[in-house]
Simulated scan of single mutants.
Amino acid sequence: MGVLVVIPARYASTRYPGKPLAELRGATGEARSLIRRSWDAAMAVEGVDRVVVATDDERIAGPARAFGAEVVMTPESCRNGTERCAVVAEALGPEWDVIVNLQGDAPLTPPWFVSALVDAMRADPDCQVATPVLRTDAEALASFLEDRRNGRVGATTAVFDRALRALYFSKEVLPYTGRPLGPDEDIPVFHHVGVYAYRRAALAAYGDWPVGRLETWEGLEQLRFMENGVPVTCVEVDARGRPFWELNNPTDVPKIEAILQGLGLA
């Protein structure tokens, strides 16, 4: 089973223009761009056969090639990373059975998160789309709620059934946690980690569907699968004590830098 990792990256982000080129300093003090750190994260995953950066902008392609990345240019008409992955999968041929979308704003993604998705696809031939979810702790939940109180678009949450099929994804903090938790209760909020694994056929179909109503409101590309009857499998992952955060806003830069330095990452 050929496994291809695609890192979609675009310059013209409404909320954070030029985000893939934002510089992050690690433990050595060296500044590396977000796209470089995302590439490093992808290259650390075992069992992956090929990694490419997918972009429509030479301002990203040039620096990516400079640090040794393989780049596939994609059309400006791609509306999100999944559409960009579909273009890459078509361009690179049928040998790739599983295509992983490692979004370029999650440089702290542990390699075992991605491996868990690939393992889930191998274990269940009927699984068409898989994505990781991470149970929040009190600190992470407080950060989610603080972002919402301050009007910032922060992390995405996932709600799923007993078979781990997604019921919904949202930028709101779901489920609502208005009552105090009991001493033996786990926090019921799961952080959706922005990584996807797709079967080739599911990815090919995605680009033929119109943009969905829920996808438009939430700004979450995975909802298009659900709106068209394709189940999304949630794979619960364990951070193993490692902090995880995504670069959604400029205010996230110092938080991610502090985590990089705390982990001793260059």
Rank of each mutant, 00 (worst) to 15 (best):
V6H: 00
R10Q: 12
R10V: 15
A12C: 09
A12M: 09
A12K: 12
R15I: 09
Y16D: 10
P17A: 07
G18C: 05
P20K: 01
E23P: 04
E23D: 08
T28V: 04
G29M: 08
S33F: 05
E46P: 13
D49Y: 07
D49H: 12
A54E: 08
D57T: 10
I60S: 03
P63W: 02
P63N: 04
A64M: 02
F67I: 08
C78G: 10
G81F: 03
G81L: 03
E83W: 00
R84P: 06
C85W: 07
V87D: 06
L92S: 05
D97C: 09
I99E: 08
V100K: 02
N101K: 10
L102I: 02
Q103N: 15
P107G: 07
L108E: 09
T109D: 06
P111E: 06
V114R: 09
V114I: 14
V118H: 07
V118F: 04
D119S: 13
A123L: 08
P125W: 04
P125M: 04
D126G: 13
A130G: 11
V133T: 09
T136Q: 13
T136N: 10
A138P: 01
E139D: 15
S143P: 07
L145Q: 14
D147G: 01
D147N: 11
R148E: 14
G151D: 01
V153I: 13
G154N: 06
T156M: 12
T156G: 03
T157C: 06
A158K: 00
A163I: 00
R165E: 05
F169D: 08
S170W: 00
K171A: 13
E172N: 12
E172K: 12
G182W: 03
D186W: 06
H191M: 11
V193P: 06
V193Q: 09
V195M: 05
A201W: 10
L203R: 08
A205T: 10
G207F: 03
W209R: 10
W209H: 03
G212Y: 00
E215R: 14
E215Q: 15
Q222A: 15
R224L: 00
V235P: 05
E236P: 15
D238H: 02
W245T: 10
P250V: 05
D252W: 02
V253I: 15
K255L: 14
L263A: 02
